[in-house]
Deep mutational scan, measured.
Amino acid sequence: MALNTPQITPTKKITVRAIGEELPRGDYQRCPQCDMLFSLPEINSHQSAYCPRCQAKIRDGRDWSLTRLAAMAFTMLLLMPFAWGEPLLHIWLLGIRIDANVMQGIWQMTKQGDAITGSMVFFCVIGAPLILVTSIAYLWFGNRLGMNLRPVLLMLERLKEWVMLDIYLVGIGVASIKVQDYAHIQAGVGLFSFVALVILTTVTLSHLNVEELWERFYPQRPATRRDEKLRVCLGCHFTGYPDQRGRCPRCHIPLRLRRRHSLQKCWAALLASIVLLLPANLLPISIIYLNGGRQEDTILSGIMSLASSNIAVAGIVFIASILVPFTKVIVMFTLLLSIHFKCQQGLRTRILLLRMVTWIGRWSMLDLFVISLTMSLINRDQILAFTMGPAAFYFGAAVILTILAVEWLDSRLLWDAHESGNARFDD
């Protein structure tokens, strides 16, 4: 018995066209964080690309023209004298008006014999932002004059995390709450300039795509075929072959399989920071003279006294001054041990922890910024005066060393310790 099946006739004509040209192939790229070699397709503007294995951002879609970056830099340069030299806060102490600005706080630190601690604050609040705007201006002028731009481009990517104007702005709020127990506070004209400078700096850093600047100024022929001998440069993120001198053909720094002496430098910085954190938390970090009496505060006791007036601000200072430094030390110690013992479990967790400490590390400088600003506000000789204690130097040095330890660690070593050939990683 035959089955009668109805015929289905399409209502619209289906047209099949042959592909007349070869589909576009992607360029081969190595991930600078996990060293995976993959094919990167062509990316349009405002599109980002991520590593298929570790999800690290390979290409950032946010990109401004150099002219727009230069305009932002010149605007920031105009704001800087007002943000640093004009009063941020006014207080009335014992019937006398006192003005506080950024430069005055750094000068008070240096004047009291601790120039190293003052230079830490100076670099993060004044030096690094000033280098940022002058570097962008150098790129703008240098591109037109045919100057060598490689050193500036190499420095810009590392400079971003040292620009800490946003953290200093939080420190202004913390210092205001600490001082309000002794005097009446009012915002100064410099505060508005400083807030504007923070906003412009944040926007500029978020749109400063150094890798795209490398592509514009020093374009290189990408690798179009897969080759395990391809290496990625950690300076400019170019994937290719080393030249005859073993250097990256684009930025001219040595092109090595792994960062040289990464573990040794990381261990040295980490152990030194552990040693410095002990006096930083045991010795007094601030000293207040009130009517001839002397009151010393460690980091913890200062947080407890701050909690009596504002528990939320005390929580912020606790996280930045105690929780973050010790968390960074514990995480980095764990990561280094996992590399030495070739741990194969929990790779995803370790990668996330490394990215976390990379982002939060700079916030530990908050305590030094609060001390710097408070020193310029309260300084009335023996009637009422505020000065920093010996722990300030140890704390600042420990924070900087932990930042350097994270920067010096080559994250690809975590993958080397893991089993080879993993296309995915999980716990």
Score class of each variant (00 low, 15 high):
Phe341Tyr: 11
Arg355Met: 15
Met155Pro: 02
Leu283Gln: 11
Ala268Val: 04
Leu159Met: 02
Ser176Glu: 04
Ile360Phe: 09
Gln180Val: 13
Val406Lys: 11
Pro151Ala: 06
Gln112Tyr: 05
Arg424Glu: 15
Gly235Asp: 03
Leu270Val: 10
Ile98Asn: 06
Pro279Phe: 04
Tyr28Asp: 13
Glu211Gln: 12
Asn422Lys: 15
Leu323Met: 12
Lys111Trp: 01
Met120Asp: 02
Asp297Cys: 04
Thr134Asn: 13
Met356Ser: 09
Leu66Met: 15
Phe386Lys: 00
Tyr394Trp: 10
Leu94Phe: 11
Asp367Arg: 00
Glu161Tyr: 05
Phe425Met: 12
Leu200Asp: 07
Cys248Met: 00
Trp107Asn: 15
Ile316Asp: 02
Pro41Ser: 11
Arg259His: 10
Leu93Asn: 01
Gly146Arg: 08
Glu215Asp: 07
Gln29Val: 13
Gln112Pro: 10
Arg59Val: 09
Leu347Trp: 09
Tyr241Val: 06
Gly26Cys: 14
Ile371Asn: 00
Pro151Arg: 01
Ala49Tyr: 10
Arg59His: 10
Ile360Tyr: 06
Leu37Thr: 13
Met332Asn: 07
Tyr28Arg: 14
Met109Tyr: 04
Phe141Tyr: 01
Leu306Ala: 01
Gln345Gly: 14
Leu23Tyr: 11
Asn143Leu: 14
Ile319His: 09
Ile131Asn: 02
Ala392Gln: 02
Asn379Val: 02
Ala100His: 04
Ala83Phe: 02
Arg412Glu: 00
Ala320Glu: 00
Ile288Cys: 02
Leu404Asn: 11
Asp381Lys: 02
Ala223Gly: 12
Thr349Lys: 14
Ala175Asn: 11
Leu335Tyr: 05
Ser135Phe: 02
Gly26Met: 12
Ala115Glu: 14
Gly127Asn: 03
Met103Gly: 03
Ala314Met: 10
Pro249Phe: 09
Leu335Gln: 08
Met147Ile: 03
Ile311Arg: 03
Leu149Lys: 05
Val357Asn: 10
Ile288Met: 02
Ile311Gly: 09
Gln180Arg: 06
Asn281Thr: 08
Phe333Ser: 08
Ala385Tyr: 04
Gly240Gln: 08
Arg226Glu: 04
Glu21Lys: 09
Thr67Asn: 14
Tyr50Cys: 10
Trp140Leu: 14
Met365Tyr: 03
Ala83Arg: 02
Phe386Ile: 07
Cys251Ala: 00
Leu234Gly: 06
Trp84His: 09
Leu200Ser: 11
Ile8Tyr: 06
Glu22Asn: 11
Tyr289Cys: 04
Leu3Thr: 13
Leu89Ser: 06
Pro6Trp: 07
Met147Arg: 03
Leu69Glu: 06
Phe341Met: 07
Leu366Pro: 08
Pro151His: 05
Thr117Asn: 01
Gly346His: 13
Phe238Pro: 00
Arg260Met: 06
Asp35Arg: 02
His46Tyr: 11
Gly240Lys: 05
Gly302Met: 01
Phe238Ala: 06
Arg294Pro: 02
Ile172Phe: 12
Gln186Leu: 11
Ile96Ala: 08
Glu215His: 09
Phe74Met: 13
Arg412Ser: 02
Ile116Tyr: 09
Leu197His: 04
Asp243Ser: 05
Leu130Asp: 01
Gly127Phe: 01
Ala183Leu: 03
Ser305Thr: 10
Leu300Phe: 11
Pro52Lys: 08
Leu230Trp: 13
Asp27Leu: 12
Trp107His: 15
Ile136Leu: 03
Gly142Leu: 06
Trp107Ala: 15
Gly240Ile: 04
Ile167Tyr: 04
Ser39Tyr: 14
Ala49Phe: 07
Val152Cys: 13
Ala2Gly: 06
Phe318Glu: 03
Val152Leu: 01
Val133Lys: 03
Ile339Lys: 09
Val210Cys: 12
Met365Thr: 03
Glu161Phe: 03
Ser372Ile: 05
Val317Thr: 01
Leu404Gln: 15
Ala280Phe: 02
Leu132Pro: 02
Thr134Ser: 10
Gly302Ser: 01
Ile8Arg: 11
Thr349Ser: 14
Lys229Phe: 07
Gly240Trp: 05
Leu234Met: 07
Ile274Val: 11
Thr11His: 12
Leu335Lys: 09
Trp162Ile: 01
Arg226Cys: 12
Leu257Gln: 05
Val152Met: 01
Lys265Tyr: 01
Ile96Tyr: 08
Thr239Val: 05
Asp114Met: 10
Trp107Phe: 15
Asn143Glu: 15
Pro284Gln: 14
Ser338Asp: 12
Leu94Asp: 00
Gly61Val: 10
Met356Thr: 11
Lys328Ser: 00
Val152Ile: 07
Leu154Phe: 05
Ile299Tyr: 01
Ser119Phe: 02
Gln47Val: 12
Met375Pro: 01
Gly292Arg: 08
Cys266Asp: 03
Ser65Ala: 12
Asn281Asp: 12
Ile177Ala: 09
Glu42Gln: 10
Ile106Leu: 04
Ile98Arg: 05
Val317Glu: 01
Pro222Gln: 10
Lys12Glu: 13
Gly396Asn: 02
Lys328Arg: 00
Gly292Ala: 05
Glu296Arg: 14
Leu230Cys: 05
Leu354Trp: 06
Leu208Phe: 11
Gln29Arg: 15
Met120Tyr: 13
Leu276Phe: 05
Arg221Tyr: 07
Cys51Tyr: 00
Asp243Ala: 10
Ala115Met: 01
Met80Ala: 10
Phe326Leu: 12
Arg221Cys: 08
Lys178Thr: 01
Ala398Val: 08
Thr374Gly: 02
Ile106Thr: 06
Val16Pro: 15
Ser45Pro: 13
Arg250Gln: 15
Asn4Ser: 08
His207Cys: 15
